[in-house]
Every structure is written in C-alpha cells, then in structure tokens.
Design a protein around this nucleic acid. Structure first.
Lengths: 204, 204
DNA sequence: AATTCATTAACCGCTACGGTCAAAAGAATT
DNA sequence: AATTCTTTTGACCGTAGCGGTTAATGAATT
C-alpha cells in the first residue's frame, strides 16, 4: 500500500473516489476490482499493484474515511455558533464541503452501515463507533427554546430542519447543481424559517 | 408467467417484493436470481419456473410498478384539495401508503432510472415516460401565492416542503417507525409551517 | 395406484471474478 | 543511444458461481 500512498494526492483521490463509489453502490462482495479500475480509468492489475488485495483496499477506505470524519467533527466543535439555526447551517455547510471534496464518501459510509459480508464485517464496527453522524450531534444539542414564538414546538422545528437537510443532501447525491447554489438556497430556506418562527425581538 | 399470476396474491407480493428489493439494491446485472429466491424464501429453480428468465421477471416488475404508479396518480387526481399545504400532505400520505404496501418499490423505481444494462435499457424508457414523480406534479401545480405572508417567497416554501418530504421518505426506507407515527409527525410539521407562513386571515 | 402438479437438489456450460506475471511503455541516467 | 529503473498493462490461471435445465421428490386428486 506504500505504492499507493506515494502517488500524488490528486491521483489518490481519483482512485479512492472510484473505489468508494463502487463499494458504496453495491456492497463489498459485488464490488469488482475491474469495475473500480474502470471507474478510475486505470487497469485492474494496477489496483492490485497498489493494494495487493480487495480486502486491503476496502479496509484502507474505512480507515481513510474514518479519519476524515473524525477531523470534520473536530472542526465542527471549534465553530461554536450560539444560535440554533446557525448551527444547522454550519453543520450542513461542513457536510456539503466534505461531500464536495469526496463526492462518493456519503454513499460509502452509508453502505458500511449495512455491510454484512463475513470477510470484512468485524473490522467495520470500529469505524461505526467513532464516526457518529454529524448532524444529529448538532441538532440535538441544547436548543434555546425561549427564542421561538409561542405555540411553536421546537421539536417539530428540529424535525423539519433535520429532514429538510437530509432531503437537500440526498438530492445532491445525483444531480449536477453546484454546491454554492445548493448552499445559497439552503441558507435562504433556513432564514425564512427563522424569520417566521422566532419571536420578533430575537431577529438580530 | 401465467404460473406466477395464478398464485395467491400474498405469495406474489412476497416474491415481487424480494425481486424489487434485490434489483433495486444492486441493479439488473448484479441482481442474482439466487439472491432473489433466498430473499423470497423459495428455491432458485422455482423463480425460473414462474418467470422463465431473469429478463422476463425484470420486465414484469417494470410493468407491474408502472401500473401501480399510474393508478396512484389517478387516485391523486381525484382528491382535489384546494389548499397548497393540504396537497402536499395528501401526496405524501399517498406515497407513504404505497411504500407501506410495497416497501421495496421506491428503491426499485429509483434504480430503474439509472439502469443502463443493454439487456433491458430500451424497455425502461417506456415506464419512465409514464411514471412521473408524484410529488413534483402536486408541488409545482398552481400555487396560490396570495395566501402567504408578505416577504415569504413561495418558491422557498415549496423547496422546503419538497426536500423535507424527501427527507421523511428517505428515513422511512430503513427504520422501523410506524407509518402512522411518521404521518402524524409529518402533518404536525406541515401545520406548523402553514400556521406561521400564511397570513392570519387564511388560517381557516 | 395412477395421475397431476408444485417444488427442489443436483447438475451443466460458461462467464467472469480475484489475483499473478512477463513484458510493454515511459522516465531517468549514463 | 544504450541502459537501467519504474510504472502500467494485456493476457493468463484456477475457480466460484451465474443463468438456466432436468430428473426426481412429494403432496394432493381421482
């Protein structure tokens, strides 16, 4: 695997993205090295040259994504936005930026959760315990309920925002709209909600 | 295929669900009859006895789901709710009820969209042209903009609701929460939005 | 008991998988 | 330009397992 790590970063990204994409789409067993190689635009033999075996590649990806997730959560902790809506937006921005750099990662991480092939099942638990979902951590942490208008249930607002965010993230998986456009739209929507759900006096 | 159609409905449902689930998860080529048979709790040979070939089974499912979709859209047309929010709720209810009866159908339909195996590619266009997405039809049809408060952009509201709905539907795919609970929560959220985004005089 | 029909285990030919390797194709060095 | 060294691949191997068939099993019907 040293061979692979000696490659220029850009090349590593291409290959890792191809592998994550294929593994994520069909799971460990049905993810064929030939598919991954084709997606990366290299020969099958070269993949084996870099990683030695399919299992090694898979485990490398788990470790790799785990590190990125951990670093992201860390980064999130540093931006201590006070306001509830701001937190949501920050979390979404972070996740979108990750998905921008590693477009296939979300699908890969999701697939790990369901993977049950005995060849790799045991090694998976490790990552799962570490890489908690970013959004939930943010959304569920101390909401300042007093800011909401009377009659507005904060739990429902959280639910709307979480599901809305999931919907936005989901739509990103396929299509071709730019990150910036999505993020702008997202911010506007969140603003609209804040403007109409917060009491007047808390609108900045 | 007459053999299959002669089966009790419940049995047909089990087998169709298993097939949709596997096809939907991994696509036509990597969906093995042995996997489908195992998921349905029957032998591989029996699947061939019912359908003759993998392709026949696949095409049958496309036709089958197409009919259900068409019937649903029809049913939707009959419930002419006047109000925008009500329309959203009605559409979501309809889709949830379909997903309740045919849990694997959403995934299967989604997968059809990306299917590019030459063995079945041509036959797929047929369904795609017919089975337009239910939500969009509803959401984008004549919105009564005048009801919204000043400063509330209806496009953003539609976006929030569509993405929120997608998020709700997506969460349904995995977990075990009951349809009713989801639907109740969903209605509450939509109500909350209406109560805060409509002008006072339109809140019934 | 003979007939019919649903169901399957065992099988067949063949595709294509994971993995190897010798050699082609480039770079770098002399 | 010849030589060495590294990167990359086409062709190959053994084998797992695919789509599909068939003979046999068993339950029900007459």
């Amino acid at each position: 695997m040293e061979k692979f790590l000696a490659l220029p970063q850009e090349r590593q990204d291409i290959i890792a993205a191809a592998a994550m994409s294929v593994f994520g789409a069909v799971g460990y067993k049905k993810a064929y090295i030939s598919d991954i190689a084709a997606a990366a635009g290299i020969s099958k033999a070269l993949v084996f040259h870099y990683f030695g075996s399919k299992k090694t590649l898979y485990l490398y990806l788990i470790e790799y994504t785990g590190k990125i997730m951990a670093a992201s959560v860390q980064e999130q902790r540093n931006t201590e936005s006070a306001d509830f809506f701001e937190k949501i937006v920050e979390a979404a921005k972070l996740k979108l930026s990750i998905m921008n750099r590693y477009p296939a990662m979300a699908g890969f991480l999701a697939s790990i959760y369901y993977e049950d092939d005995p060849a790799v099942a045991s090694e998976i638990q490790e990552l799962l315990s570490k890489g908690e979902d970013v959004r939930m951590q943010i959304a569920l942490s101390g909401t300042d309920e007093s800011k909401f208008k009377d009659g507005v249930d904060p739990k429902l607002v959280i639910n709307i925002l979480v599901k809305f965010t999931e919907g936005v993230m989901g739509s990103r998986l396929d299509n071709l709209v730019s990150i910036d456009a999505i993020m702008l739209e997202f911010s506007q929507c969140v603003d609209l909600l804040r403007n109409n759900l917060y009491k007047e006096e808390f609108l900045k």
